[in-house]
Lab assay of single mutants.
Amino acid sequence: MKVIFLKDVKGKGKKGEIKNVADGYARNFLFKQGLAIEATPANLKALE
């Protein structure tokens, strides 16, 4: 799953980066902790 990092995550990505991560890791950790959001077209446009 492609995500946009909202904060730096050690070993995974830095704020503003778009990367592929495992679906479960994204849903169960990154999204719940507020560290990333899904890289949807609307979210990508908002990032610009």
Rank of each mutant, 00 (worst) to 15 (best):
M1K: 07
M1S: 05
K2M: 15
K2N: 10
K2G: 06
V3W: 01
V3K: 00
V3N: 00
I4E: 02
I4P: 00
I4Q: 02
I4W: 02
F5S: 00
F5L: 07
F5R: 00
F5D: 00
F5Q: 00
F5T: 01
F5H: 00
L6I: 11
L6K: 02
L6P: 00
K7Q: 14
K7Y: 12
V9H: 03
K10W: 13
G11D: 09
G11W: 09
G11S: 06
K12H: 15
K12F: 15
K12Q: 15
G13H: 11
G13T: 03
K14F: 12
K15I: 10
K15E: 08
G16M: 06
G16D: 05
G16Q: 02
E17G: 02
I18E: 03
K19G: 07
N20M: 15
N20P: 08
N20E: 15
V21Y: 06
V21I: 09
V21P: 00
A22G: 10
A22W: 10
A22R: 12
D23W: 11
D23S: 15
D23Q: 10
D23M: 13
G24I: 10
G24D: 15
G24Q: 13
Y25R: 07
Y25D: 08
A26N: 04
R27K: 13
R27V: 12
R27A: 08
R27Y: 12
N28A: 10
N28K: 12
N28P: 00
N28H: 12
N28T: 08
N28I: 07
F29I: 15
F29S: 07
F29V: 14
L30F: 03
L30N: 00
L30P: 02
F31Y: 07
F31L: 12
F31K: 03
F31S: 03
Q33R: 13
G34F: 08
G34H: 07
L35R: 03
L35E: 03
A36L: 02
A36R: 00
I37W: 05
I37H: 04
E38H: 06
E38W: 06
A39W: 12
A39P: 02
A39Q: 02
A39Y: 12
A39N: 02
T40L: 04
T40K: 04
P41D: 13
P41L: 12
P41W: 08
P41S: 10
P41K: 10
P41H: 10
P41Q: 11
A42I: 09
A42S: 11
L44S: 04
L44P: 03
K45A: 15
K45T: 10
K45L: 14
A46P: 05
A46N: 12
A46G: 10
A46S: 12
L47P: 05
E48M: 13
E48W: 07
E48S: 13
E48T: 11
